[in-house]
Amino acid sequence: MTVLSAEEVSVVLGPGVRVLKSVSLAPAPGEVTGLIGPNGAGKTTLLNAMAGLLEPEQGRVLCDGQPLKDISRQQRGREIAYLEQDTQCHWPLTVERMVMLGRTPYLRPFRGESAEDHARVADAMTQCDVVQFAERNVLTLSGGERARAMLARALTVEPKVLLADEPTAGLDPYHQLHVMELLRERAQAGTAIVVVLHDLTLAARFCDRVCVLSEGEVAADGTPADVFAGDVVPNVYGVTTSTGTHDGQTYVIPWRRLPPKGLSD
């Protein structure tokens, strides 16, 4: 039973700019769903619609069978965690304080944090391997450290769904793998995860399912083996790819740009 599903969602941003055209996506609990596609394909817009941050013109987003817009903001924040691309903290808070912000959907005004809040923060920080930075100023963290701290922030609500927008952007290979492993662990604990990725090999290796967006439409949706086997990726990205297997897992390497396809359209 899916918790969150986008059903034939269309989003228009400004006159004549249709960013999503009838896109459906229902991430399954316990699975990592990779959302891939070229720049401007509508990946972030789809995540925003699924997080309730923008209202689709057509179609609907359902959460626990109810339209997402009918659910209180707070309830939505408890069920769906949204990890914005390259989140920055604007004040030099300690890492622990910053992670505690993730508990916002549970915090009451003028009241301190409960033991439960502190326990969840400690769990999330342990899971994401940032306990050793607890007292550090969040602005002094390196990219890899910050990515994990931000992920810990999103996990403090123990969300049913995690929407992560390019959590590996700007990270070195070691930290990219680390973040993807953390997402996999989280999925094994039952969370439905949607992750926007540009690295096709990460998508092939760590996702149970890959959805390819192109110009606001779903170009392919299936297991990595199916999606990467066909011509979809070369067509959508306009690149040739080299694929193979290593340790029984698929890898995909973009190799050469194809000539612009506008001529035949």
């Binding site: 949204y82 914005e84 604007h90 912000l101 003028f110």
Partner: peptide, 23 residues
Amino acid sequence: FANGRALDALSLGERTAASMGIN
């Protein structure tokens, strides 16, 4: 004074704050 929690959440930007239930 009613905005303490919201201002804290806003440390992480408007979108992230909104995703955490801030109006």
